Simulated scan of single mutants.
Amino acid sequence: MQPASALRHIKANIVLYGALFANLGIAVAKFFAAAISGSSSMLTEGVHSLVDSGNQVLLLYGQARAKRPADAFHPFGYGRELYFWAFVVAILIFAIGAGVSFYEGWRHVADPEPLRDPTINYVVLGIAMLLEGTSWGIAVREFDAGRGGLGWWQAVKRSKDPAGFIVLFEDSAALLGLLIAGIGIWASHWTGDARLDGYASMAIGGILAAVAVLLAREAKGLLIGESADAALVGSIWDCLEKRPEITAVNHVRTIHTAPDAVFVAVSADFDDDLLMGEAESLIEIIEAELKAADSRITSIYIRPEKQGDAVVYPRPPRGAVVSR
């Protein structure tokens, strides 16, 4: 990769790279602190940061794989491979992040370790808060720039790019986990009960499990195949309905083949007086107009079909929201 190209790649994936470098540094510090202090919640947090680092690597790998050009075996490209890796990320968070957290917490509750000086834990937690907060701020800024005035939850549900909201959820869970770890460590030393640190570890596991389930649900919808947003579907209907040569639009079907690529299938009833050559020219004009209007439209299939013979899906109400 050329230096200029590499710089553009990093800039385009600033959220993932920011989270990756932050989590790698934090993981090392947390494991070091856990080894010195014997804290269960700190060990859990180290595993959490390590899993998050691996997740960012998988998402970057998925993005690279998704950009491969179409071929004979995948005529619409490999864009949806990113959705597969997003689903794998959710599984890893649940299986490793939440699983290890629950196990370590239960082990320290069943067999508490003697309390040691917690100072190193507080230092590491403070540094981790600073780094995680920076990564979280980058993720929030980038996601906020692309939500187009939608509410945060609505923007997540309508997003077709899992990288942005996965990092946002991971960093949010990480900040909450750091807070719980700090409370658990403090409570253990204040009460003299080392089991409280184990309970904090289990609470962190619960947060990770909840985030994993949420991410798996969002990734599943993308992997199965989701339609384009209502605004894009509406603009396609507008383009078709304004044509006097088209007497009826039977249906407009769309599916995302990548976060920034949409396949469009149209069934329309053409005027009976339209000659075959004229219909072919009209279809070419419509395809060119649609692609020029929105760069996400990469493939279009327009089928002339009598309304009485076609499967008819009425136009969605204006302002309708397509969600999972």
Rank of each mutant, 00 (worst) to 15 (best):
Y78S: 09
A4F: 10
R318Q: 15
W85I: 02
I120H: 12
A95S: 04
D238V: 08
S101F: 02
G206V: 00
V213I: 00
A139E: 10
R141E: 13
A4V: 11
A293G: 13
G146C: 08
I127C: 15
G25E: 08
Y313C: 10
V211M: 01
G234H: 13
K160H: 03
L24P: 14
F94L: 00
A258L: 09
S267D: 09
G149E: 07
F143G: 05
G97F: 01
A35V: 14
D71K: 04
F87H: 03
D309S: 08
I283A: 12
D117K: 09
M1T: 07
F94I: 00
A95R: 04
Q307W: 12
A210R: 00
D273P: 06
I36F: 04
W190R: 15
G105S: 11
S159E: 10
R80K: 15
G206E: 01
A200L: 08
E226C: 07
F32Q: 08
Y301A: 14
D269N: 06
L222T: 02
G164Q: 10
E81N: 09
S49N: 11
A279Y: 13
R65F: 06
K67P: 05
A12G: 04
G148A: 13
P317L: 03
T254D: 10
L59T: 05
K291C: 04
P75D: 05
R80Q: 08
G221N: 03
M129T: 05
S40K: 06
R253E: 12
G177E: 01
G148I: 08
A29W: 05
K291V: 04
L196F: 15
V264Y: 07
L240G: 08
L16F: 06
S201W: 01
F94D: 00
L196S: 15
A174L: 05
A29L: 15
L168Q: 11
R116I: 02
L214D: 00
D193K: 01
A64D: 06
Y17V: 07
V233G: 09
L196W: 13
E45G: 02
F169L: 01
I180P: 01
G133W: 14
A66M: 03
F143Q: 12
I36E: 10
L50R: 06
D111K: 12
A288D: 05
L130Q: 15
A210Y: 00
I285G: 08
A209K: 00
D111N: 13
I183E: 02
I255H: 15
W186G: 14
H108P: 04
P317N: 09
G184L: 13
F87D: 01
F102P: 05
T254K: 07
I10K: 05
G225V: 11
I93A: 00
E170H: 00
I283T: 14
A230C: 09
F165N: 02
A64F: 14
R107S: 08
R303H: 10
A187H: 02
A216D: 00
G319A: 10
E132I: 11
N250C: 13
S295E: 12
A145Q: 07
G137H: 12
S188I: 11
A293V: 13
Q307P: 13
G151V: 15
L58S: 10
G164L: 09
R195I: 02
A155D: 03
D294K: 11
G308R: 08
I183K: 03
I127D: 14
